[in-house]
């Protein structure tokens, strides 16, 4: 009798050990209302699909800091093996992430930064660098001179500030002049509205630099309604397949600069952490430029 029990117990233990081979990963997304973040989750899902030992649980904080905090705490309580967090903002979300990290749960921070170093790995792209690259490309395309409209995302957000600052660095001391700039709040209808005002004021606009692709598309719609879309080039940022890359293919945008989601890289990092080989503390994602010339070849990596 005792023997049978022992055999049964050991059988349970072995299956238990085998089950240990699978890992549960909690993914805390700050806002699935943005297509870019939907894409991030899709990228994660796609990469994780190749690794059946990974089990992912997704949570969406709906752009609410406190909700995200609660969701991170839920993941910790549920005892996940690894956390991926794309935080809404740095300061309020640093403590819950640090608490998880101190409990021994590895944490990968995606896209936006946290304060301090209480996490395993940060993966993100550099908006300022992308803004600089866009600026350089624009200077070259316009041969260093011409009137430009800048449609800004939201100047109270860091991506907006960085995409603006990088661009301005590159066009400094060239003949490129920003004659009209406005906040379009990342929204296409607002971009169209602002562009209509720019068109009413300036008859010789050469290019529109928008902080995201929907903004550039909205500007194009305004120019098209005014019959001026052929005289103006449109440049956007993000390069999502269904937005920026589509617009480049359709000949609407002259260029779209990719802001990579890092979804694939997050799963790569997660796998190496779970296999005991922690990656670099900070991974900066490479970005691509998509233009009509290179779109079929899958874009061109920025230096």
């Amino acid at each position: 009798m005792k023997m049978i029990l022992v055999v049964l117990m050991s059988a349970f233990l072995t299956t238990g050990a085998l089950a240990q081979k699978s890992f549960t990963i909690g993914m805390s997304q700050c806002n699935l209302g943005e297509p870019w973040r939907v894409q991030m989750n899709a990228d994660i899902k796609k990469s994780a699909a190749a690794h059946p030992e990974l089990k992912l649980i997704y949570k969406d904080a709906q752009n609410d800091t406190l909700k995200q905090r609660a969701q991170i705490e839920e993941f910790v309580a549920a005892g996940v093996d690894l956390l991926i967090v794309s935080p809404k903002e740095a300061v309020p979300l640093t403590p819950p992430v640090a608490a998880a990290f101190k409990k021994g749960i590895p944490v990968i921070v995606l896209d936006r930064r946290l304060v301090g170093d209480q996490f395993t790995c940060f993966i993100g792209a550099d908006n300022r660098r992308i803004g600089r690259a866009a600026g350089r490309w624009i200077v070259e395309k316009l041969h260093g001179t011409g009137q430009v409209v800048e449609l800004k995302g939201l100047m109270t957000s860091t991506p907006g500030q960085d995409r603006n600052a990088g661009f301005r660095e590159s066009i400094k001391e060239t003949g490129i002049k920003v004659v009209f700039e406005a906040d379009m709040k990342w929204l296409e209808p607002d971009a169209r509205k602002e562009m209509e005002s720019a068109l009413a004021r300036f008859p010789d606009i050469k290019l529109v630099y928008a902080h995201n692709d929907p903004g550039a598309h909205g500007a194009w719609l305004a120019a098209k309604a005014a019959g001026r879309e052929k005289d103006i080039l449109f440049v956007g940022i993000d390069g999502l397949p269904q937005e920026g890359r589509t617009y480049v293919k359709q000949g609407i945008l002259a260029a779209s600069f990719e802001y990579p989601t890092g979804g694939r890289e997050a799963i790569d990092a997660a796998l190496s952490i779970l296999n005991g080989k922690p990656p670099a503390k900070e991974i900066t994602l490479k970005s691509k430029a998509f233009t009509p010339e290179n779109i079929e070849k899958g874009g061109e990596e920025l230096p």
Partner: peptide, 14 residues
């Protein structure tokens, strides 16, 4: 959001 899968519904069809 549910019927669109959270994505914009445009002429680019997945």
């Amino acid at each position: 959001k549910w019927i669109s899968g959270g994505q914009k519904v445009s002429s680019a069809v997945q």
